[in-house]
């Protein structure tokens, strides 16, 4: 329908596929989003931002599910992760690069019923937990605390929705 607004989700899916399917898909996604050595935390920040937008839309349509807490906390995750990406980018010694361009803030259409809304949020939180856990072993110590807290924070939000 509006493929351009689905950009962040497509790229997240791309990354998950790449992890599952190996070099072939990596080659395809590399063509699409091409910064060499992107900062892995930029991906987590974008994931958090998309989740916060979705949760805000869900909270507006279905109050009382706890989606407002998801929106607030995932928004804070996005902010903290983006700040760390920015700090690393502006630190001369760092080789990491963040994708350029301001993130688009397209309105998100919430699902039609409360049940699918909660399921969608729960899936997003599980994906964020998974991705953070995957990244954790290779992070420098000054980042592992932040990513660990984000992963734990997502687990708590899943508990809020449960």
């Amino acid at each position: 329908m509006i493929p351009s607004s689905r950009g962040p989700q497509l790229s997240r899916r791309g990354v998950l596929l790449a992890a599952a399917a190996g070099p072939l898909v990596v080659a395809c996604t590399t063509k699409e989003t091409s910064p060499p050595e992107p900062d892995p935390l930029a991906e987590l920040a974008e994931q958090a931002r998309v989740d916060a937008a979705l949760a805000a839309a869900v909270a507006a349509s279905f109050p009382g599910l706890g989606a407002d807490v998801v929106a607030a906390n995932r928004g804070e995750h996005a902010q903290r992760l983006a700040a760390e990406v920015e700090r690393a980018r502006t630190t001369p010694s760092s080789a990491a690069r963040s994708p350029s361009g301001a993130p688009s803030s397209q309105p998100v259409a919430p699902p039609a019923d409360a049940g699918s809304a909660v399921a969608l949020l729960a899936d997003a939180l599980a994906a964020a937990q998974r991705r953070g856990t995957e990244l954790l072993p290779d992070l420098p110590t000054h980042r592992s605390g932040l990513v660990g807290a984000v992963v734990a924070g997502c687990a708590c939000l899943a508990e809020v929705l449960a």
């Binding site: 906390n73 804070e76 903290r80 932040l146 807290a149 984000v150 924070g153």
Partner: peptide, 10 residues
Amino acid sequence: TPVAVALPGT
């Protein structure tokens, strides 16, 4: 409240 803290442990 809040029922969940954003960044546990920090």
